[in-house]
Amino acid sequence: MALRRRRRARPVLSTVRPGAALPPPSALELERRAWRTRRARRSTLVALASTLLFALVAWFAVTRSPGWPRVQATFFSPSAALESLPDIARGLLVNLQVLVVGGVLVLVVGLGTAALRTLRGPAFAPLRILATVYVDLFRGVPLIIVLYLVGFGFPALGLQGVPTSPFVLGTAAIVLVYSAYVAEVFRAGIESVHPSQRAAARSLGLTHRQTMRIVVLPQALRTVTPALLNDFVALQKDVGLISVLGAIDAVRSAQIQVGRTFNFTPYVVAGLLFVLLAVPSARLADAVTARARRRQQSGSLL
């Protein structure tokens, strides 16, 4: 190995000035960008073509089926749809009322139940156990059975002061079931707040309740908003179930029309109205979820 005098290394100084505008992209980068654009365009075209093909096949399969003319007349009759629309729309107002009243009650009862479940200490054991039993019970029972039990069971008691309106009883049943779900969503949110936040609050002298109200719950709510909106979308369609108690809502109105004309189009109309109701909420839920994800990625938490 040849012995060579080692030259003293000189520091390499960059000629790029910090803060100056970027030079135009290199040929290499331009070629990369062009390739990415080409690939994206090709993927879009492939997706479009396959979607069209599938739609065509489905369309032919359905319209060429032997029963299609009868199905079309029974389920997709424009005249029957137009005729039933006013009654169904009026019924939908009842659903909306249940949705608003029920939605607010669900938030209150759910949050209360969640708070009870997070209480520590032996003195609160009965409340904690009660809340746990309630959640287990009403998450397990199908909504329709709760509707029957509340809707027909309570009036049958014949007690004075017990409401008999299917609207009130239906709302009560829905609130009972949904609050159990929402309580668990809230509890997950409360437990997702890092214990160090609680330690910091308590070290400042905040009491357990102040810590909950000022530090834990605001952070928990932010975390669970997407999940809550998702439950709200589910609630929007389940309010249609109060029709089984005889409340004249959208579903019941459709049922009455079907009974009169033996045409099932009103059901489709009612279904479409519920979908129209759900779409804005679903988009809102998406937007809120996306925003929460962006916040998290920017490292807003520890």
Binding site: A200, L301, L302
Partner: peptide, 20 residues
């Protein structure tokens, strides 16, 4: 204990500021 903690200040390794 809440009254006692008011008379002390604690600073943690991970800052633990309230992010909201």
């Amino acid at each position: 204990a809440d009254r006692v903690r008011r008379r002390m200040g604690v600073v943690f390794q991970a800052y633990n500021l309230f992010p909201h």
